[in-house]
Simulated scan of single mutants.
Amino acid sequence: MSEASGPGQPRPRPQFGEYATPEEQRARIQRPEVTEALDAGVAPRPEQPAPAAVASDGARPGVLRGPLWDRILTGGLLAYGLVSTVSTIVQLLDFPHYAESAATVLGADAAYTNLQAGYVWGAAAALVYGIGWLLTAVLSWRRLKRGRVAFWIPIAGFVVTALIAGICVTLALVGDQQFMTAIIGAVPD
């Protein structure tokens, strides 16, 4: 393009598409087969929807797919898990009362006295339940958006969350020797 064009000289042939119409430019950018057709001197086929507008299975992105029974079951499990999680968090934040209620269920008359450890480990268990439910909900939603079966995610999320929170509760209970002695003494041989 070092040749200058002036009056009386022919305009140089475009090298980079600067004379292409906006439609031609879009067609070449979005669809490589259009570029090949234009280079061959053939008119391109009518423009198709952009690839991002339609997924490979024909569904629009962001729309839930998959079996209806799975969406209903997953939603029901998440709703039940939310109610259960909120109620458990409330109980764990008052850990001494929580521990004494558990002792009563086991038939022991025990008072939880390690208050500092109880409040710390109770709050940790409550945090585990909250984060566990949120993570489970996000993973379930993402799987539902992809049209995959997701009902098992809330079940697995509950199991993992309950195990981790159970460790926190156990550490709080074991930290109070008098309480544990009363519990062990209440268990029949």
Score class of each variant (00 low, 15 high):
residue 151 F to S: 13
residue 82 L to G: 13
residue 68 L to K: 11
residue 157 G to D: 05
residue 91 Q to I: 00
residue 57 D to K: 06
residue 123 A to T: 15
residue 157 G to T: 02
residue 20 A to C: 05
residue 73 L to P: 04
residue 135 L to R: 03
residue 163 L to G: 13
residue 1 M to R: 13
residue 104 T to V: 13
residue 189 D to W: 07
residue 164 I to T: 15
residue 129 Y to G: 11
residue 70 D to V: 06
residue 122 G to A: 08
residue 86 V to K: 05
residue 30 Q to T: 09
residue 54 V to W: 02
residue 114 N to C: 13
residue 186 A to M: 13
residue 113 T to M: 14
residue 91 Q to W: 10
residue 148 R to L: 03
residue 164 I to P: 10
residue 115 L to R: 14
residue 57 D to A: 01
residue 75 G to H: 13
residue 143 R to S: 00
residue 84 S to W: 10
residue 139 L to W: 03
residue 36 E to A: 15
residue 38 L to K: 06
residue 142 R to P: 04
residue 87 S to M: 08
residue 150 A to Q: 01
residue 185 G to P: 05
residue 153 I to H: 05
residue 169 V to I: 12
residue 143 R to W: 03
residue 77 L to Q: 02
residue 120 V to G: 07
residue 133 W to H: 13
residue 18 E to W: 03
residue 54 V to Q: 07
residue 7 P to R: 07
residue 180 M to Y: 09
residue 188 P to K: 11
residue 165 A to Y: 02
residue 106 L to G: 10
residue 146 R to K: 14
residue 28 R to Y: 00
residue 56 S to W: 04
residue 112 Y to W: 09
residue 44 P to K: 01
residue 35 T to M: 08
residue 189 D to N: 13
residue 12 P to H: 14
residue 158 F to L: 11
residue 115 L to D: 13
residue 73 L to C: 05
residue 89 I to K: 07
residue 4 A to L: 15
residue 177 Q to D: 15
residue 165 A to W: 04
residue 8 G to M: 07
residue 172 A to W: 12
residue 127 L to E: 07
residue 121 W to Q: 10
residue 184 I to Q: 04
residue 85 T to A: 08
residue 128 V to M: 04
residue 145 K to M: 14
residue 82 L to V: 12
residue 37 A to G: 10
residue 105 V to N: 10
residue 169 V to R: 14
residue 166 G to S: 08
residue 27 A to G: 15
residue 13 R to I: 14
residue 21 T to L: 09
